[in-house]
Simulated assay, not measured.
Amino acid sequence: MSDAVPPPSVPPPSLYVVSGLSGSGKSVALRTFEDLDFYCVDNLPAELLPEFVRSVTRADDPPRRLAVGIDVRNRHNDLSDVPEWLAQVGSLGLDPRLVFFESGDEVLLRRFADTRRRHPLSRFGLSLADAIALERQLLRPLRALADMVVDTSDLNVHQLRRRMLTELELGLDESVSLLFESFAYRGGVPADADFVFDARALPNPHWDPRLRPLSGRDADVRTYFEAQEDVGQYVAQVGQFLDNWLPRLRSGTRSYVTVAFGCSGGRHRSVYLAEVMARHARENGWRDVATYHRELG
Rank of each mutant, 00 (worst) to 15 (best):
residue 224 Y to C: 14
residue 229 E to C: 08
residue 62 P to K: 05
residue 210 R to M: 12
residue 72 V to E: 07
residue 97 R to G: 08
residue 280 H to G: 03
residue 213 P to E: 11
residue 202 L to F: 08
residue 291 T to A: 07
residue 2 S to M: 06
residue 250 R to I: 00
residue 207 W to P: 11
residue 245 W to A: 01
residue 96 P to S: 12
residue 10 V to L: 12
residue 292 Y to N: 14
residue 113 A to Y: 06
residue 118 R to F: 01
residue 272 Y to Q: 10
residue 66 L to K: 01
residue 257 V to C: 03
residue 237 Q to T: 15
residue 63 P to T: 08
residue 211 L to D: 15
residue 283 E to S: 10
residue 83 P to Q: 08
residue 209 P to A: 09
residue 146 A to K: 09
residue 77 N to F: 15
residue 245 W to V: 00
residue 76 H to T: 14
residue 276 V to A: 15
residue 108 L to S: 11
residue 41 V to I: 15
residue 20 G to F: 04
residue 16 Y to W: 13
residue 117 R to Q: 14
residue 87 A to K: 14
residue 128 L to R: 09
residue 264 S to P: 04
residue 242 L to D: 07
residue 232 G to C: 01
residue 33 F to V: 07
residue 275 E to W: 13
residue 159 Q to R: 11
residue 247 P to F: 03
residue 215 S to H: 12
residue 281 A to N: 05
residue 73 R to E: 13
residue 102 E to W: 00
residue 59 A to R: 14
residue 108 L to P: 01
residue 144 A to T: 10
residue 62 P to T: 06
residue 267 R to S: 07
residue 140 R to G: 07
residue 102 E to G: 00
residue 255 S to W: 02
residue 5 V to C: 13
residue 107 V to C: 14
residue 232 G to S: 12
residue 89 V to S: 14
residue 164 M to A: 10
residue 34 E to K: 13
residue 7 P to D: 13
residue 47 E to R: 15
residue 221 V to Y: 02
residue 185 Y to G: 07
residue 121 L to D: 04
residue 114 D to N: 15
residue 148 M to H: 10
residue 52 F to S: 06
residue 141 P to G: 05
residue 146 A to H: 02
residue 193 A to K: 02
residue 94 L to G: 11
residue 136 R to F: 02
residue 275 E to T: 13
residue 99 V to N: 05
residue 203 P to R: 04
residue 118 R to P: 04
residue 117 R to N: 06
residue 108 L to D: 00
residue 184 A to W: 07
residue 264 S to T: 15
residue 207 W to V: 13
residue 39 Y to A: 13
residue 271 V to T: 08
residue 113 A to L: 10
residue 136 R to V: 06
residue 9 S to I: 11
residue 196 V to M: 15
residue 155 L to Y: 06
residue 247 P to R: 02
residue 98 L to I: 10
residue 205 P to L: 03
residue 204 N to A: 08
residue 130 D to W: 09
residue 42 D to L: 04
residue 287 R to I: 03
residue 295 E to M: 15
residue 286 W to D: 07
residue 196 V to G: 03
residue 60 D to R: 15
residue 125 G to I: 03
residue 239 G to T: 03
residue 44 L to C: 12
residue 90 G to C: 13
